[in-house]
């Protein structure tokens, strides 16, 4: 029982990272129509910038500034590289572009910070186990869950109640009509891409506190995050979060009984969802069926 709880909780934490990544990916996919293969790169950028800044800003400052900078870099990348290819309606262009970008970011990281792993120091106050029986429930892990919940709720409130959020939702449904009503969709898409990258950066800083930093750290998170979107339902942000948590938990639980299958179970789940309900758990009808 203890082992099951241990693995399930590990899985849940992993799922939280998937959920954060999937949230940003889903935002970018729905408004920018870009399958952002460089999302793992923005995670790495957020994490390494936080690492570099933490001696000056402390962990807390770095936790805020790292993701923000990842978002700003995302904005610049959107403006310089992605915007020129919106005209080409084939998604292949942005897929190839961001794939190339992912490789460049990974190698740049290796060049700047070195290939060996680095630790991100986490303040003691949030790093001690909460109880001895449940030693794996450290304060930091609860903190990761809390921050992710806060960020997700923040995004929900933004989309639900602000003019910017209303326009992002409108643009997601019908970009052309949104533009014809006077909304600067170029700015809207740039901001949205920036938000998506901010979430990747946040996932990066939080993950660095658990797993440490390595240049390819984004790679192991990005594929499951795509799976999370497919399971949760393309077009549904809540679905992306749910999908991330579900596959994380499932992988954790399966580890207890049959560790070798812990990764395969994610793809098995995707297979089942695609066969039974192609739109995903919360996705809208019509996108894939």
């Amino acid at each position: 029982m203890q082992l099951l709880l241990f693995n399930a909780f590990n899985g849940l934490i992993q799922g939280v990272f998937y959920a954060l990544m999937a949230l940003g990916l889903a935002l970018i996919l729905s408004l920018n129509s870009v399958i952002n293969m460089a999302h793992g790169g923005f995670l790495v950028i957020g994490a390494y910038l936080a690492y570099t800044l933490s001696p000056y800003l402390g962990f807390w400052g770095a936790l805020i500034v790292g993701p923000l900078l990842a978002g700003v870099i995302g904005l610049v990348v959107e403006r310089g590289l992605i915007r020129p290819i919106y005209k080409r309606s084939d998604p292949l262009y942005s897929l190839l572009l961001t794939f190339g970008l992912a490789l460049i970011i990974e190698d740049l990281t290796r060049t700047i910070w070195g290939a060996q792993g680095l630790p991100l120091e986490v303040p003691d106050i949030i790093n001690s186990p909460v109880s001895e029986t449940y030693f794996f429930i450290t304060g930091y892990r609860l903190f990761v869950i809390g921050i992710t919940a806060a960020a997700s709720i923040g995004l929900y409130l933004l989309l639900r109640y602000t003019l910017l959020g209303i326009r992002i939702r409108a643009g997601t449904r019908d970009l052309e009509t949104t533009a014809a009503l006077g909304v600067n969709i170029y700015k809207l898409r740039a901001l949205n891409f920036g938000f998506g990258c901010l979430f990747a950066g946040l996932a990066g800083v939080l993950a660095a506190g658990v797993l440490g930093l390595t240049p390819p750290m984004g790679n192991s998170l990005i594929m499951p995050s795509f799976v999370a979107i497919i399971i949760g339902g393309v077009g549904s942000l809540f679905g992306a979060v749910l999908g991330g948590l579900l596959i994380g938990l499932a992988a954790g639980i399966v580890t207890t009984y049959y560790p070798a299958a812990s990764e395969a179970v994610i793809y098995l789940m995707m297979l089942i969802v695609l066969a039974v309900r192609p739109r995903g758990l919360l996705g809208e009808e019509g996108l894939f069926e």
Partner: peptide, 23 residues
């Protein structure tokens, strides 16, 4: 671009209404 033209004070009621159904 479309948004600049709208910004001049050009209102557009598109064919098929194009209401944002989920808003």
């Amino acid at each position: 671009p479309a948004h600049r033209i709208a910004g001049l004070g050009v209102g557009y009621v598109p064919e098929g209404r194009k209401i944002f159904g989920s808003l």
